[in-house]
Simulated assay, not measured.
Amino acid sequence: MSKKILITGASGFTGKHAVQHFLGKGYTVHAVTRHTKLDIDHKTVHIHSFDLSDKAAVHALLEDTKPDYILHLAGENSVPESWITPFKSWQANVDSTLHLVEAVRALGLTSRVVIAGSVLQDELSSAASPTHPYSLTKTMQTTVGLAWHNLFQVDVMIAKPSNIIGPGVSNGVCTLFAKQLRQLQASGKSNFQIGNAAVTRDFIDVRDLVAAYETLLLNGTAGETYEITSGRWVSLGEILSLLRRVSNFDFTIQSETEEAMEMKLPMKSEKIRALTWKPTRSLETSLADVWEYTAQQ
């Protein structure tokens, strides 16, 4: 009998890739969505549409499915929205996580749980002075998960990815660049303007990320936080140069400044790589796939 995995946020950018990945590996997938329909026809996909802020519904779902693994991707990931409706962000990120781990505890399940953190979350020591409401909710989300491990031995791990890239509906900077470049190309113009081309980021392909999530579910250590990165910092200017190559669109880059004002976040991927995971896709390949995807939009 195949292993059962419950994937929350299954209709999101990473969630859709996760559903396809685990189907391809032979898992029985229980996909949780809130409002967006998940267009997939597969005999081993079971789609559940409800809000994870509904504690009773979460409890009933876990009681019915008894998943071997839970990949918790659902939540509110918009910084601007968190300023407008902070309590909604809290419910989506913190309450939903608490309902999941508490249902695992209350039902006595042995489910392995991976909770997706964020590169934008703060350290717990800074929670009273957060960067924005979103960072607070992600800090508290991961804290709740680890607390339920320490208090009640729920098998929880935290995965904190860097900036995610790949084909699909995404608000990530690489997808935004690709869309803007297609609009520029269609207009007959060739001058792309950017505020600061020297700003650097670490990018991880969403498909490599999903493979890392599976590695954690199979081999990770409960109570640990795993940072998932490519290990390569690149400037936004380099991203644009690679997009110029994969698109065959000869545009010029005009940057208002070339001064890198941001500090690199101290993310390290040694722990996840020690579990034999490593990224397999080059940045250029990822960007080529993003470029092709935006042609369909």
Rank of each mutant, 00 (worst) to 15 (best):
A60D: 15
P80G: 07
R34M: 04
S82E: 04
I84W: 01
L38Y: 01
T85H: 13
L73Q: 12
H48G: 04
H30S: 11
D51R: 01
D39V: 01
K16S: 01
S89D: 12
V29A: 03
G26T: 11
Q20M: 06
S82N: 06
N93Y: 07
L73S: 10
L61Y: 00
F50N: 09
A31L: 05
F22H: 02
S49A: 15
F13L: 12
H59R: 14
F50P: 04
A56P: 00
A60P: 00
P80A: 08
L52M: 14
H35A: 10
T65Y: 01
H35F: 08
L61C: 02
T14N: 07
K55I: 04
H21E: 06
D51P: 02
K43D: 09
E81A: 14
H72P: 06
G15M: 09
R34S: 04
L73R: 07
H46E: 08
K66T: 15
V79N: 08
D51K: 02
A57R: 14
A57M: 07
W83P: 02
L71I: 07
V29H: 03
Y69L: 06
D64T: 15
A92L: 11
H42L: 01
T33A: 03
E81H: 12
A18Q: 07
T65F: 02
L62N: 02
L73N: 13
K66A: 14
K43I: 10
S11V: 12
F22S: 00
N93M: 09
E81T: 13
D41W: 02
P80M: 10
W83F: 15
V94Y: 08
T44P: 00
G15P: 10
I84Y: 05
H59Q: 13
G26P: 07
N77A: 15
D54I: 04
G24E: 05
T36I: 11
G26V: 12
H59S: 05
L38N: 01
Q91Y: 04
Y69H: 11
A60Q: 15
T65W: 00
K88H: 12
R34F: 13
H21Y: 15
S49N: 10
A18M: 10
S89K: 09
A56M: 10
A60T: 14
S89N: 14
G24W: 09
L38H: 02
I70M: 07
A60Y: 02
T85F: 09
P80V: 11
D41N: 15
I70K: 04
H30Y: 12
K25N: 09
T36L: 07
I47P: 00
K88G: 05
T85P: 00
F87N: 07
T28S: 07
H21P: 05
